[in-house]
Design a protein around this nucleic acid. Structure first.
Lengths: 133, 133
DNA sequence: CAACATATTGACTTTAACGTAAAAAGCCTG
DNA sequence: CAGGCTTTTTACGTTAAAGTCAATATGTTG
């Protein structure tokens, strides 16, 4: 297993541009180490990038994503901070559950549209295309 | 049940601004009728708005949403068009299923962070706060 | 080492999705 | 019907998330 990934390896793997990865770095979402000026991404960096892209697919902004990632990485020493973390977690969980419900609804609607379309196709194929079946 | 909704009623119900609704109209996503210059939204319009907002929560762009809504409303007369519709439906379904998986993963990660946090809280409350438990 | 590709940096541009502000129109209400 | 409110229209501004382009720098290969 290789120790480091280059920027182009990652752009190819995730189908994003170098500009995107540098932008994420400027936003403090990843911090690849350097060999000279060149960026070297560790497996940890790669995992972070996966998290970012997953967040994007779910419609989270980069700021949201930053907060989520920081939750993962945070290591609060006192109870108050830990309780605050628990609150944030449950807020995020609520959001995700709402998205799940939204998806369920949309899938159901797609099912309806699909079965409607299938019905009409079979009508047409049965030669019943003389209006008003 | 009322026949029409005013723009402000809908902005209040959905917690969006009039600017947003007019913007959606300019994008061809809703087409309220008019009484003079005033916009009157039907129940159908209201449903569309719900669809739009649901799409947004799932991270779809307004263009995506337009296409999805057009799928719902489309009434293609010939088999070729219907098959194309079926393709679009299954593509959208794939996207949604991917989002579902993304959500599952994220929920699992949140569970882990949460249980870690709970563990540390109980350690702290047990008075074991003298480093290295 | 010259040539050529690859990487970095910085500046400017673009696109989506609204926000904000100003002016005019419409419509109650005393 | 004057004053005040909401609504509409028009136009310009803003923000997030990159895209594009040009100038260097670095690396590598014959």
């Amino acid at each position: 297993m290789q120790r480091y990934f280059t920027i182009t390896q990652l752009t190819q793997e995730f189908d994003i541009t170098t500009r995107t990865l540098r932008f994420y770095e400027a936003q403090g979402l990843v911090s690849p180490t350097r060999r000279g000026r060149q960026r070297l991404y560790t497996h940890g960096d790669r995992t972070r990038i996966k998290l970012i892209l997953r967040g994007k697919r779910l419609g989270f902004s980069l700021n949201d994503i930053r907060e989520i990632i920081e939750m993962y990485a945070s290591d609060p020493g006192e109870t108050g901070q830990l309780r605050l973390l628990l609150d944030r977690i449950s807020a995020r969980r609520e959001e995700l559950l709402e998205k799940q419900r939204d998806i369920e609804l949309t899938l159901l609607e797609l099912d309806e549209v699909e079965s409607g379309a299938r019905t009409r196709i079979s009508e047409l194929e049965a030669g019943l295309s003389r209006e008003k079946v």
